[in-house]
Design a protein around this nucleic acid. Structure first.
Length: 207
DNA sequence: TGCCTGATTGCCT
DNA sequence: GGCAATCAGGCAA
């Protein structure tokens, strides 16, 4: 193995606020390969982002922001680089990153991770030993990372939940990305707003 | 392997 | 009152 898990991610690899201001679709694409890290009380977990979806505002009927700001989606209108977390189907949480100025309401849904660190803890939280099923879906990765609903609105730049710049993958720093339609929606389903790390075995569905 | 269904809760119409 | 950016398990083939 490498260093201790906790030494692999440092404050100088954290993606800066500027990163989230480059346009939602671009950010969704650029987040492929980035690493989500959470230092929880139970321990540290981390995963490489292998699947994202962009959710826009006025032009996008699938977006929670489409009908304006409400108590539920309030965090989606917060500052870029902050978390937007919501309950779906009464039992699962989905984790998003805000990618537009305050009041705009755009975000990127993180749909799948490749587990990198804290895998034993993920197994316990997910109640499975199958690494391919630890983080291969938006509800699953929230469970595996131990992310809680109260974290909606927190900064991902300073805090115990952070996003880090893409690192080398099998010796390469470039990522081949597959683009497709978003999953689990009906309105706006035809738009090519889903991004996957090509060839990854940790996706929520095939490319 | 793949389709189908139940679980479960807050928020919007 | 209905439904939602989901998931696991059951059953058929």
């Amino acid at each position: 193995m490498r260093k201790r898990d906790s030494e692999q991610f440092t404050s100088d690899t954290i993606l800066p606020a500027d990163f989230y201001c480059g346009g939602t679709v671009s950010v969704a694409r650029a987040l492929i390969g980035a690493c989500l890290v959470y230092n929880s009380k139970e321990g540290m977990t981390a995963g490489r982002i292998v699947e994202t979806e962009a959710y826009l505002y006025k032009t996008d009927p699938a977006s929670h922001a489409y009908r304006g700001q409400t108590p539920r989606n309030g965090a989606m209108f917060g500052p870029p680089g902050h978390a937007y977390i919501y309950l779906i189907y009464g039992m699962y949480l989905c984790f998003n990153v805000v990618t537009a100025p305050v009041g705009d309401g755009q975000a990127v849904l993180i749909r799948a991770l490749e587990p990198l660190a804290g895998i034993e803890l993920m197994k316990v939280r997910r109640k499975t030993d199958d690494i391919g099923r630890l983080c291969s879906g938006p509800g699953k990765l929230v469970q595996a990372m131990g992310i809680r609903r109260e974290q909606s609105g927190v900064s991902l730049i300073a805090g115990d939940l952070t996003l880090h710049a893409p690192r080398a993958y099998r010796g390469a720093t470039e990522f081949k990305i597959a683009v497709s339609r978003r999953i689990g929606i009906t309105a706006g389903a035809e738009l090519p707003l889903r991004f996957c790390l090509k060839g990854s075995r940790y996706l929520s569905a095939k490319e």
